[in-house]
């Protein structure tokens, strides 16, 4: 398969992730969408790695995964902590980041 196909699939997945982040109210779903976006990027990295016959891209994928794992651990902990305080996971009800 030519690389374009993979890239386009990755673009679609990424865009869906963006749409989810922009529209869903549930913070956990927003998180899932971010995971989806990270995976779309990983897909492009592996695709390019295959295309240019260079393993560095795959090593990068590992690091993205590590960061994603750390992010999920901390992010979910945050959501749990906020839920305890505010009794909600809806991002539009958590507006601490106001002027």
């Amino acid at each position: 398969m030519p690389i374009e196909y993979y890239l386009i699939v990755a673009a679609i997945l990424f865009s869906i992730g963006v749409l989810g982040v922009l529209t869903r109210r549930n913070a956990i779903i927003v998180f899932l969408c971010i995971e989806l976006m990270l995976n779309a990027v990983n897909l492009t990295l592996v695709a390019f790695s295959n295309h240019v016959q260079n393993l560095d891209g795959q090593v990068f994928v590992f690091f993205v995964m590590i960061v994603a794992a750390a992010e999920v651990a901390v992010g979910l902990a945050l959501i749990v902590a906020i839920f305890r305080q505010k009794e909600t996971v809806y991002v539009d009800e958590i507006n601490l980041m106001k002027w």
Partner: peptide, 17 residues
């Protein structure tokens, strides 16, 4: 460094939760 990052994330998650 990634391993250190993961360690930090573990500790952070524990403290937050």
């Amino acid at each position: 460094i990634a391993s250190v990052l993961l360690l930090v994330a573990i500790i952070g998650a524990v403290i937050l939760a």
